[in-house]
Simulated scan of single mutants.
Amino acid sequence: MTPSDASSGAAADRWSSLSRPPLSAAALQRALVVPGGLWTSVEVTGSTGSTNTDLAARAADLPEGAVLVAEEQTAGRGRLDRTWTAPARSGLFFSVLLRPGPDVPVERWGWLTLLAGVATATGLSRAAGVDTALKWPNDLLVTVEGEERKAGGILAERTGDAVVVGIGLNVSLTEDELPVPAAGSLLLAKATVTDRDPLLRSVLRSLEQWYERWRAAGGDPATSGLQETYAAGCATLGRHVRAELPGGRQLTGTAEAVDSDGRLLIRTADDAHEAVGAGDVVHLRSVH
């Protein structure tokens, strides 16, 4: 399906769900693409497999700041190639194209996943009055009736001299629509706003602010304030966790900090410290 075909399909069922109106690319473009700003284009497609895959395929022909939004993703990808699907127009599914170099050394590009988490949480707090916690390295958590649930995720992928950062967020999903019982949405977290247009604008503006601050600091997470802000909003720190590492190894201990490379520092039962740069982390219980 081409973007034009997808848009035609979206127009055909434009009013199929009055509570989930379609996004307007023209309105978003007018609001976000401004002289001197980061965002250079905003494209909205009706349905696609993955905005990350689509944007990465076109990265060589696009300037930094291209934004691709899908009303529906049929093959959205999370970490470890997990799929991310949701009803059409029930969430925000978008990817952005960034080129941090030459201002930022390549070894600091890994911070973009954590930066996107901070920016998303900040933007949602401003626009929807909902607290979004960060689970290392790339999950967005909300509280639903006192229970911590995953409402979104982030996937950053390098392609040539660029990084494509994809964000998926459940906005208006009801309990019956959740892919798994442990999932959540802004609606279930009692957000004051579930209109995706102002939510997307707020997240993208927050992402621009954090990205420019980080890039101006040469990607230094401490100087830019990113490391401190991430730690303050990270629900993983202070928790007893199990890290499921590449190769099938597991590590259990207390998550104590995020180091200057964005790695999670875990203190094990024998008081050893290990830095985890990749893997799945399971929250086991709070440490008192």
Rank of each mutant, 00 (worst) to 15 (best):
A182M: 06
A128G: 13
L134V: 13
E147M: 13
W136A: 13
G146E: 10
D139H: 12
L173P: 01
A127C: 13
P137N: 15
R126W: 14
A183H: 02
L178I: 05
L141T: 05
V171Y: 00
L199D: 00
P181E: 09
L124S: 11
T174E: 08
A156N: 05
T132P: 04
A128E: 06
L188G: 03
I167H: 01
T174Q: 08
T159K: 03
E175C: 05
L173Q: 03
A128C: 15
S125V: 14
V165Y: 01
K150Y: 07
A128T: 13
A189H: 09
L155A: 06
V203R: 02
G184F: 04
S185K: 06
K135W: 13
L187P: 05
K135V: 07
L204F: 09
V165E: 01
V171W: 00
R201T: 09
E148N: 11
P181S: 10
A156T: 12
P137R: 09
V180Y: 10
D195W: 07
P198K: 10
L173W: 02
E148V: 12
R196Q: 05
G152C: 04
A189E: 00
D197G: 11
E148S: 14
A191C: 04
V144F: 12
E145Y: 13
I154A: 06
P181Q: 08
G146F: 11
L199W: 02
R149H: 11
E175I: 13
A133F: 15
S125L: 14
T143P: 11
G146Q: 14
L134C: 15
G123M: 07
V142A: 05
D176Y: 09
T194D: 06
R158D: 00
A162E: 02
K135R: 14
L188N: 06
T192K: 06
V144M: 10
L200W: 01
I167V: 09
E175K: 14
V164A: 02
R196N: 04
L173M: 10
E177F: 02
G184I: 07
L124V: 15
L134Y: 14
R126S: 15
E177L: 10
A151Q: 03
D195Q: 11
L155S: 07
A182D: 07
G153T: 06
E157F: 10
V180A: 11
A189F: 04
T194N: 06
V165G: 01
D131Q: 15
T194Q: 11
E175Y: 06
L155G: 04
D139P: 09
L188F: 09
G168C: 01
D195T: 00
L169T: 03
R158H: 04
R149T: 02
P179D: 09
G129Y: 13
T143H: 15
L199C: 05
T192M: 08
E157P: 03
E148W: 14
V142L: 12
D131K: 02
D195H: 05
R196H: 10
S125Y: 12
K150E: 07
V203F: 05
L169Q: 01
V180T: 07
L141Q: 08
L140E: 06
N138L: 13
V203M: 12
A182G: 08
K190Y: 00
V164H: 01
V144K: 08
G146M: 12
T122E: 11
V165C: 04
G129N: 13
K150P: 07
G152Y: 05
P198Q: 03
A182I: 04
